[in-house]
């Protein structure tokens, strides 16, 4: 793997210090974004560290005063996809944990449980999940999210709205299956449904 040649970088210690301070302040956000992408805390921190170092190595190409949060999120996202780390997500969706979550909630009036939502989030196609997280939790405008994901603003809007619908549906079906069918059957049905939703326009 090649990194940005350090010899090409203008040597400016004051600029580096300012950059480093900003980068350090963004670490908690990078960790959170990585956690939602991978679903696994250890893998997420590896990813966030890689992204942090990529950003540091590429600091000469960053224009100070522009949106550094969006810039680092883009780096992290590219890193995630380039290493095909979405396979983490698959292994992380451990069937047993899923079943436990689904059967554990038996109060239909209960607010959306965190674990249930984490699980639902994990079932979304990655491009819907990232769009929803960036806009719904990361504090990005649609335009910024589009830049981070390298797609059109309209695409982000449609992904966010599909993600919301799918999540709602996944959660509703989780409740529906609680009383009757076996949890594993429910899981299969939810996964199949999530897939149908994600393929639908």
């Amino acid at each position: 793997m090649t990194t940005v040649s350090r010899a090409d970088r203008p040597d400016d210690p004051a600029r580096d210090r300012a950059f480093k301070g900003d980068l350090v302040a963004l670490i908690p956000h990078l960790r959170a974004f990585a956690r939602t992408l991978t679903g696994d805390p250890t893998a997420a921190d590896d990813l966030a560290q890689d992204a942090m170092m990529k950003a540091w190595d590429a600091r000469a190409s960053f224009e100070m005063g522009t949106n550094m949060k969006a810039w680092t999120f883009m780096i992290l996202r590219n890193q995630f996809y380039s290493e095909k780390r979405r396979s983490w997500r698959q292994s992380q969706l451990d069937q047993e944990a899923a079943e436990r979550t689904l059967v554990a909630i038996d109060d239909p009036a209960a607010p959306v449980a965190l674990d249930e939502l984490r699980l639902g989030l994990g079932m979304l196609p990655s491009e819907q999940r990232e769009a929803l997280v960036l806009v719904g939790a990361g504090g990005f405008a649609y335009e910024e999210a589009a830049e981070i994901c390298g797609c059109a603003v309209g695409t982000v809007k449609s992904r966010v709205s599909r993600a919301r619908r799918a999540l709602q549906d996944i959660l509703d079906r989780g409740e529906y299956h609680r009383d009757g069918a076996a949890a594993s059957e429910a899981m299969g049905s939810i996964l199949a449904h999530a897939e149908r939703l994600s393929n639908a326009r």
């Binding site: 908690p28 959170a32 939602t36 959306v112 965190l114 939502l117 929803l132 939790a137 709602q168």
Partner: peptide
């Protein structure tokens, strides 16, 4: 409710 929980999941990590 989903939106609030989603932000909570994210912010919980930010605050770690």
């Amino acid at each position: 409710a989903i939106g609030a929980r989603l932000r909570q999941i994210f912010d919980d990590v930010v605050n770690e």
